[in-house]
Simulated scan of single mutants.
Amino acid sequence: MHAWEAIQRAVNYIEENLQEEISTEMLAEMVSLSPFYFQRLFKRLVNKPVQEYIKLRRLSKAITQLNTNDRRILDISLEYGFSSHANFTRAFKETFGITPEEYKKTHPMLNTVIKPEISMNYVLIDEGVPLVIDDIVLEIHREKLASAESYIGLVADVKIATQTPVGQSTGIDVPGQLWTRFHKEKAELAESVNPAVELGMSYMADSEKGIFKYFAGVLLQGKFSSTNDFITQELPAGNYIICKIEAEDFEKLVTEALDKAGKYFFGTWLPNHCLTFEPFSAEKYYTDCDCGNCMEIWVKILD
């Protein structure tokens, strides 16, 4: 068994037993590693200490239960291993910046830690060859965009520290909140856009201020003027590397699948191909894709 396989086995066990008591020593013994080596290896491959990861996954599951109006916060706290309402509230606020009570009132979108598929870090697929893992399909290919595409939508500043890497930093999901706002206001654009193609774009990162800009919009067809906060954004012409993602449903596509694909694409595939690209990335969402729920990550290659 490879070392990463041992950690993946432990991660899988944690996921299946989040409502039970889980000790680091028990996990280490289960995968035949010393507690010292297990903890070092776990943190290296999962980017979180063992017990911190368990807490964050429990909080992620608890969020789903908080969306059920007939469940008491205390019952959810005890179900996921927190000794009291107060301990659960403290952990929740430290992680997401709001209390469980505040979440139940407003239901903001939150960044949560997603169960990793460690094996993806050790697989290097060829272009045009699908990778199937955990009901997610990835395929990477090149494409030349002959002319620029124009989109119209909304933009927001996002704090780098609380949003990247996706799924590792917790808190309010600012891009997700922006998409929610855009979908509420986009009816005004109906006669000027192609609703089948939407675009999210991260760009203009400012390391000194610790922010980047995120745009959420839809493909523009023709001219449009508005007194609202809508702006236009361009996907420039050029040569792109594209990571296509398919998932069994839309919610999984824009959360778990996007998280895992992004980590694989930017953390494993692109570095191993020694490719450099312009300082922005785009997410294309297709609402009428023949394959069901799919999207693409686009990065523009530097010549």
Score class of each variant (00 low, 15 high):
P175T: 02
I160Y: 03
Q168C: 06
I172A: 03
D157F: 05
A161M: 10
A146E: 15
P165Y: 03
A156Q: 12
P130S: 10
V174F: 05
D135L: 02
S119R: 09
P175N: 05
I136F: 01
E143M: 13
Q163V: 11
P175W: 03
A156E: 11
A146Y: 06
I140W: 04
Q163Y: 05
S119A: 06
V166W: 12
I136W: 01
N121Q: 13
G167D: 03
K115I: 10
A148G: 14
V132E: 15
K144Y: 14
V113P: 01
I136P: 02
T170K: 07
I125Y: 02
V166M: 14
D134W: 03
H141N: 07
A146W: 05
P130A: 13
E127R: 11
A156I: 06
S169K: 15
D135E: 12
Y122K: 14
N121K: 15
V137F: 01
K115G: 04
A156M: 09
E127C: 12
V132A: 08
L154D: 03
H141F: 15
E149T: 02
G153K: 00
D173F: 04
V123F: 08
S169D: 02
L124E: 09
I172N: 01
I152D: 01
S169E: 05
S147L: 15
L138W: 01
D135N: 07
I136Y: 03
E117C: 13
S147R: 09
V158C: 09
E139Y: 00
I152M: 00
I118C: 00
T112R: 07
A146T: 11
I172S: 04
Q168T: 07
V113A: 08
K144F: 12
I114Y: 08
S150H: 09
N121C: 06
I114L: 14
Y151L: 02
G153V: 01
P116F: 02
A161E: 06
T164I: 08
I118S: 00
L131N: 06
K115Y: 07
V113L: 12
E127T: 12
I125T: 11
I160T: 12
P116Y: 02
N121D: 04
Y122Q: 11
G167K: 05
M120C: 08
S169R: 15
G167Q: 01
A156H: 08
D134L: 04
G153Y: 02
L131T: 07
D173G: 07
K144L: 12
Q163S: 15
D157L: 05
D135K: 05
K159G: 09
I133D: 07
I152T: 11
I136D: 03
V137Y: 01
E139M: 13
G128L: 06
I114C: 07
